[in-house]
Simulated assay, not measured.
Amino acid sequence: MSGPSSSSIENYLRKTSFWHVANIGWGCKLDPKLISALIERWRPETHTFHLPYGKCIITLEDVQLQLGLAVDGSVLTGFVQSAD
């Protein structure tokens, strides 16, 4: 059984205003030292970053604002079939 085509996935992402999120990071260089520093400061038990000036918490509202996601309207749910 084959999965949906990439064009149909793109159509779904566009309909849900999520296409721009799927393209975040394309063409960006990642700084391994910065990523390592953030990983070292992450505390999974409290879901916070411990930085020199205090704790930093990333909320769902932060993610919504940074990615420009719409949070009004109907909830989109469904099943995902994994190839694993």
Rank of each mutant, 00 (worst) to 15 (best):
M1H: 02
M1G: 04
S2I: 02
S2Q: 08
S2F: 07
S2R: 09
S8I: 02
I9M: 08
E10C: 02
N11W: 03
L13S: 02
R14Q: 14
R14Y: 03
K15R: 11
K15T: 02
K15D: 08
T16I: 03
S17H: 14
F18Q: 06
F18E: 02
H20K: 12
A22L: 01
N23G: 10
N23W: 01
N23M: 10
I24L: 14
G25E: 08
G25T: 07
G27D: 01
K29S: 13
L30T: 09
L30S: 11
P32E: 09
K33P: 00
I35P: 00
S36W: 12
S36A: 15
A37T: 09
L38Y: 15
E40R: 15
R43M: 08
R43C: 07
R43P: 00
E45Q: 15
E45A: 15
T46D: 14
T46S: 15
T46L: 12
T46Q: 15
T46K: 15
H47D: 15
H47V: 06
H47T: 07
T48Q: 13
T48W: 01
T48R: 10
F49A: 03
L51Q: 08
L51P: 01
P52G: 09
G54K: 12
G54R: 11
G54P: 01
K55C: 04
K55A: 07
K55G: 01
K55H: 07
C56P: 00
I57V: 13
I57N: 13
I58F: 11
T59W: 09
T59P: 01
L60V: 05
L60R: 13
L60Y: 11
E61Y: 06
D62F: 02
D62Q: 10
V63H: 04
V63N: 05
Q64D: 04
Q64F: 03
Q64N: 07
L65V: 05
Q66T: 05
L67T: 10
G68L: 05
L69Q: 13
L69W: 03
A70L: 10
A70H: 11
A70D: 14
V71P: 00
D72N: 12
D72R: 10
D72S: 14
D72E: 11
S74P: 00
V75F: 10
V75K: 13
V75D: 06
L76I: 11
L76K: 12
L76C: 06
T77Q: 09
T77C: 05
G78V: 01
G78N: 06
G78M: 04
F79S: 13
V80D: 04
V80C: 08
Q81L: 09
A83C: 03
A83N: 06
